[in-house]
Design a binder for these strands. Structure first.
Lengths: 358, 358
DNA sequence: TTTCATTATGAGACCGGTCTCATTTGATAA
DNA sequence: TTATCAAATGAGACCGGTCTCATAATGAAA
């Protein structure tokens, strides 16, 4: 009748102290591994702890030290291999320095991002790594900075926010990728991204609040301009937010009379759906449509044809932000750094001259 | 000179109380949303909290309530899409019930698993979901149970441990998959798994400490026996622990004179590497080698040929354990349940009769 | 107006650690 | 032997919440 919850009371420092016949303070010194204790007493306490099977309460520890040993990470979508690889980079770097990671998804939505941040700061994480879903509303990030919690940005820079940031050279990458398509003879190229606007159509760069995509669009447009392509803005396609969504956009695109002859996909998830949609429409890569994508995902080398990709140093992206953040956590008060990692294109078999141009 | 750490002291309940001219207890009641307070005072406290930008310290809250609102999850490898999907199932179910998830990797190593568990219990998570890497040494899981922390098992059952468990019908799935290969005319089929033994070779089932793989091997052997295949044990290949490792095993296998004509891969990561290795060796699927794999990963439908897979309800696997665990966390003291979810085979194009048999 | 029940508030213990400061112990030097 | 000092230990405050219990205020009943 007294054991419905059957919550066993955990062994505490005081319990151990009593068992070892020393004061709580002394037992704490031994168990917490600080201060000085004589070897004899230490052994006694350790033995008592073992007898009682003492497990430190990390919560209480964090409470009094003010440090939790946790780094909070907020990414857009952990299921995207890009993010899961970056997160592994973060985790590895964190573990190496004795930190743990607690992960939250924003689903690329600003409100969810805010909620996640609220949760993590509530848990008093020591530092935060965020992939900001929007550059428009960053008040919550400002709040974090103001509260004194170190913050670092992953994959997306925020010009207005002067914090440690690690990104790749998105503009350059998009430029080179587009140029590769143009060089192959394409003029009806399409850049497809998950980012969306209210009107679901691209008008100008000021509508785009995701810095990486912004950069990519600029690189894309620049390469188009260089190639003398008229009104390249019309070639930017937004809203590939989910697999069905992507599928629909691509299918619809391909059914147009003036269908694109080449597609630049903004990530590997989009690329995979695009590839499927192209196949389903009865078209072939690269015969009918050329394809290139950001992120050298595992599967891209195994399709027929294998996909030409923009290889981003994803793991290192994560590793680098984590290292930057941890350096700050350890007290090195260096000025915020903005690291831009290089990318390079891996040419495989998904780009060919357009058939109409033959 | 006084601001090298510049750690801003966070606003506490006492601060708000003072600002609102009420006692700490009253402010706490309002901010913690418990007990009774008059409407007038409530408003005053809320206003003061807003003015001071009060953010509750979740740590302290957990400290006194004994509940953290966190579910700890330990999986083998988050980068494996199988696990990342299952984890999303867990996260979604958790979020729906107001819990958060903290994730740790075991890398399928028992010591790392123990360390991860130590970490999570130290953080006083409310409950744990584990994919046990071994059925041999489960003392640490017993400890958890003994301490009163609810535990649930994901994807792998432990016959000796009577706790909530959700798995798929691995034995049946392996049996059906193998039978599919046998029916196509294969007798030299190979089952390839990441699990390994000291001798790196399979002798008998008692060497295998991963329950899911154990079941799969039994299903595999049973189908082989049914087909009258002699000494099917020799067809079990272990040790595909990493991408290069898998690659090496497959390449070596394929170079043997008696090379297998069909392969059953234990997960999609192994299948992908296997597929690559087959290609590299200059062989084709399904012309030279038939292939079937566990887990209907995204990419499997997009290769040429698309891969025939055993479709596991991965998301629901995660969702179901989480729901079981949460039910227990909420105090429903039902007896431990063992749920086994069904799988089914999606036939695509990677199985054909063996060429030699033609 | 007094009494009693009821509601609202306050004081302070508590969670399980850390950490400061005072006190005791033991060894060394005078 | 006694003074001096460092090392070892203990007592208790503290972190920021929750929560119990006592007290004060309010309102209805007598």
């Amino acid at each position: 009748m007294k054991t419905p919850a059957l919550k066993i009371r955990a062994v505490t420092v005081s319990d151990v102290a009593q068992e070892a016949n020393v004061s709580k303070a002394t037992a704490a010194r031994v168990l917490g591994n600080y201060g000085v204790v004589s070897e004899k007493v230490r052994e006694g306490v350790l033995a008592a702890a073992k007898r009682l099977d003492y497990r430190p309460n990390e919560l209480a520890r964090s409470m009094s030290t003010g440090k939790s040993g946790i780094i909070g990470v907020v990414v857009g979508d952990i299921e995207n291999p890009f993010f899961s690889l970056a997160v592994r980079g973060i985790s590895d770097a964190a573990k190496a320095e004795g930190f743990n990671v607690i992960l939250a998804n924003s689903g690329e939505q600003i409100e969810t991002e805010k909620a996640a941040l609220r949760l993590l700061t509530g848990k008093r994480v020591d530092g935060l790594i965020v992939t900001p879903s929007e550059s428009r509303d960053i008040s919550h990030l400002r709040d974090i900075l103001r509260s004194g919690t170190p913050l670092a940005l992953l994959d997306r820079a925020l010009s207005d926010l002067d914090v440690d940031t690690v990104t790749v050279d998105d503009k350059q990458a998009a430029f080179m990728a587009t140029r590769l398509l143009v060089k192959a003879g394409h003029s009806n190229v399409c850049y497809l991204t998950a980012v969306d606007t209210d009107e679901h159509a691209y008008r100008n760069i000021d509508q785009i609040y995701t810095s990486s995509v912004r950069d990519r669009i600029q690189g894309f447009l620049q390469a188009c301009a260089e190639a003398g392509i008229d009104k390249p803005e019309r070639l930017v396609r937004l809203g590939a937010t989910s697999q069905p969504e992507t599928r629909a956009i691509v299918s619809e695109s391909l059914r147009q009379p003036q269908r694109p002859t080449a597609i630049l996909a903004s990530d590997s998830v989009i690329a995979l759906e695009t590839f499927k949609a192209i196949r389903e429409t009865g078209l072939s890569v690269p015969g009918d449509i050329s394809l290139i994508t950001f992120h050298n995902a595992d599967w891209t080398s195994v399709t027929s044809p294998p996909i030409t990709v923009i290889d981003q140093p994803v793991y290192n992206l994560g590793k680098a932000v984590a290292e930057l953040l941890i350096r700050r956590l350890k007290g090195h008060a260096h000025p915020p750094e903005r690291v831009i990692l290089p990318t390079h294109i891996i040419e495989r078999g998904s780009i060919a001259p357009p058939t109409t141009a033959k």
